[in-house]
Computed example of a mutant assay.
Amino acid sequence: MSGRELWADGRLRAAWASRDWPTLIRRYRALAGISQQRFGELVGMDQGYVSRLERGRARVTSEDVVARFVKGLQMPAELGGVQNNSSVVWDPPAELRERVAHAHAVGRMDLRTADWISRVLAEHRRAEDEVGGRSLWPVVRSQLDAVTQLIPSSSGESADRLMLLAAEHAHWLSWVSWQEQRRGPALAWIDLAHGWAVDGGHADMASWAQRVRAHYSLQQGDPVRALRTAEAARYVGARPLSPAAEAVAVHQAAMAAAALAERDRARRLADEARALALRAPEAEDRPGWLYWLDPLRVQLQAADTAYACRAWAEAASGFKSALPRLEGYARDHAYYRARLEDAERRA
């Protein structure tokens, strides 16, 4: 595996973003299967200094040393603009809109860069549960810069493809902002995601962005708005949605209906969502950002709707049978464990 390929790893990228040199060295060496001696050869340092860095007994204070890491470890170009994440700027900058406004110009672009960034974003989605979104924030922002810088020199299908990739990044940034209690930036990022998806003709992503907005509204205690937005997410353009994209919109509508005590309606929507989701049981049948919607998650969503409808015994049964298969997802496991315990207490 080449040095560049190693940089698809989310934890390695998070260590770079935070300038956590001990973690970066350990993670790189583990992924590459190399010794401290070999690592030192790659970056032009002796083994003793590498050892002190890895144990936290030495610090990197020279930009020359940083440059050696960049060159010797074959760091991807989009990481060059990553700054230390101690001061996160949450709001989307104006220049992103300017770059996207110039799409469909005549020109050429490097699709290999877009392919690479798309792959890495998929890795970040999976890594976020382990390392946290805040740690990966500077990396994803730098990637979004790389994507939007390609758009002015793109045209036709290439520009549309980049619009989708930009929208996926904006959605991720919105989600992390929301988790960090940054409500305003979260809404700004999801609006960008929706607009870019519509501009690029990507119905599934446009629907997903509206579904996320509905989720935000429900979390903020506004089920009327959440239901309206979730229902609108099913009808975003002339093209039909994929089964998985429609399934998550319908499930969100079911949750909002349950919050409004419209339980029969919620049940009907939940059954519809389940049937739609089970039409796309394999990851390749779903949009990339819905990689998680496998049959296990479909079961958990059904249990979640039962919980929202106060069908405590049914909810508890669904959570209980699914939890053993969630061991590798610490955050989700804790969430559904708490729901299970509450449902059992109420049953």
Results as ranks from 00 to 15, higher is better:
Ala166Pro: 08
Ala166Ile: 08
Glu168Ile: 06
Ala170Trp: 05
Trp172Leu: 14
Ser174His: 05
Trp175Ile: 05
Trp178Arg: 10
Gln179Lys: 10
Gln181Thr: 13
Ala186Lys: 00
Ala186Pro: 00
Ala188Asp: 13
Trp189Tyr: 03
Ile190Lys: 02
Asp191Gln: 15
Leu192Gly: 03
Gly195Thr: 11
Gly195Leu: 06
Gly195Asp: 14
Gly195Pro: 04
Trp196Lys: 01
Trp196Met: 11
Trp196Gly: 01
Trp196Ile: 02
Ala197Leu: 04
Val198Met: 02
Val198Arg: 04
Gly200Lys: 09
Gly201Trp: 05
Ala203Cys: 06
Ala203Gly: 03
Ala203Trp: 03
Met205Pro: 04
Ala206Pro: 09
Ala209Cys: 11
Gln210His: 08
Gln210Arg: 15
Arg211Lys: 15
Arg213Leu: 15
Ala214Gln: 14
His215Asp: 11
His215Gly: 13
Tyr216Pro: 11
Gly221His: 14
Val224Pro: 05
Val224Thr: 14
Arg225Leu: 15
Leu227Lys: 03
Thr229Asp: 13
Thr229Gln: 12
Ala230Met: 05
Ala233Thr: 09
Ala233Asn: 11
Arg234Tyr: 07
Gly237Ile: 10
Gly237Met: 06
Arg239Ala: 15
Leu241Asp: 02
Leu241Lys: 01
Ala244Leu: 08
Ala249Lys: 15
Val250Lys: 02
Gln252Lys: 08
Gln252Asp: 07
Ala253Thr: 04
Ala253Leu: 11
Ala253Asp: 06
Ala254Pro: 05
Ala256Cys: 05
Ala257Cys: 00
Ala258Cys: 04
Ala258Ile: 08
Ala259Val: 01
Ala259Leu: 00
Arg265Leu: 04
Arg267Asn: 01
Arg268Cys: 10
Arg268Ala: 14
Leu269Val: 03
Asp271Tyr: 00
Glu272Cys: 02
Glu272Lys: 09
Glu272Gly: 02
Ala275Asn: 08
Leu276Lys: 00
Ala277Met: 12
Ala277Lys: 01
Arg279Leu: 09
Ala280Asn: 04
Ala280Glu: 11
Ala283Ile: 14
Ala283His: 10
Glu284Pro: 03
Arg286Lys: 00
Arg286Met: 01
